[in-house]
């Protein structure tokens, strides 16, 4: 009897824990929609921030700025990440060096983003003597690399050897096998990995604090401080003005929707694109 009672008790506790975990998520999403949706309007997407005391204004420059920084980061991070993954899966099988790279990538993944921020600050901003969009892009690119490397490697590992051997047997050189056969077969999974890494850095604020720095006005130059959506949300959230709080909620809603849409798309994409008939 006692044992059955404990069994039910623990089962109940587990269900309770799950409910307790889902609860904050629902609370966060509820507040985002409740507070954010009421502040979203056309001006939010087309105007730059209004000065203190004036109502209205939007975050158009932040959205564009985030886009520019993320594009830069993807441009640098994705090729390096995929190439490193290709090395791990195609050339480094069983080598000690590959294990070391894998391990370092996992460890690098856990390094706090703010440390990346000050490292890039010391490297680029201190040399250039001013904050820049380029520095922000580099900081985010460094954060993307380990995630992409590991997912690329895992996805390439699911490609059956028979396919590679078929290509090699036809006399296709190894580099071409890696690009046209292995990478192409694993591409749905690799795209998933890239989008997950993208979604992860899209919401990062800490590495941008001392690199992209933020900007209240339009800026398209890579060598100038640039606005970014998470940065702007941070600035507005800790400000004392109600109008800015309202914009912070709206900005968060936009950011979350962007991230969730990409994560959900990835889910659908990954499930449908999963290797059919792979071993």
């Amino acid at each position: 009897m006692m044992r059955t009672a404990i069994n039910y008790l623990v089962s109940g506790l587990c269900i309770l824990a799950t409910v307790l975990v889902i609860l904050p998520l629902i609370a966060i999403l509820f507040y985002l929609i409740y507070k954010g949706a009421s502040s979203l309007n056309f001006a939010f997407f087309t105007r730059i921030p209004a000065p203190v005391g004036e109502s209205g204004g939007g975050m158009a420059n932040s959205i564009v700025g985030s886009g520019i920084i993320l594009f830069l980061a993807s441009l640098m991070g994705i090729p390096i990440g995929i190439a490193a993954g290709v090395y791990l899966a195609e050339f480094g099988r069983g080598k000690a060096l590959a294990t070391a790279v894998r391990f370092t990538a996992d460890v690098l993944n856990g390094v706090p983003s703010i440390v990346m921020g000050i490292a890039i600050y010391s490297l680029i901003v201190m040399q250039q003597k001013h904050f820049s969009a380029l520095a922000g892009g580099v900081a985010l690119a460094i954060m993307m690399v380990p995630t992409i490397t590991r997912t690329t490697e895992e996805m390439l590992a699911t490609v059956p050897h028979a396919i590679r051997e078929a290509a090699l047997g036809l006399g296709v050189p190894k580099w071409r096998t890696a690009i046209s056969v292995s990478l192409r077969t694993a591409s749905p999974g690799i795209i998933t990995g890239c989008m997950l890494a993208f979604a992860r850095v899209a919401g990062e604020t800490a590495p941008l604090l001392f690199t992209a720095f933020g900007n209240q006005f339009w800026s398209f130059k890579l060598s100038e401080p640039i606005a970014a959506l998470p940065l702007q949300i941070y600035v507005y959230a800790i400000s004392p003005y109600d109008e800015w709080h309202r914009l912070a909620w709206a900005g968060s809603l936009v950011l979350i929707v962007l991230i969730m849409v990409s994560v959900t798309l990835v889910r659908i994409f990954a499930n449908r694109g999963a290797l059919k008939g792979g071993s």
């Binding site: 975990v21 904050p24 966060i28 507040y31 899209a202 919401g203 968060s252 950011l255 979350i256 991230i259």
Partner: peptide, 23 residues
């Protein structure tokens, strides 16, 4: 349910902060 718990991981830090400050 596992999707929901993973969504928690996808929420950016600054949004958690915003929610924490006001709720």
């Amino acid at each position: 349910i596992s999707f929901l718990t993973e969504l928690l991981a996808a929420i950016p830090s600054v949004v958690y902060g915003l929610w924490a400050v006001f709720v």
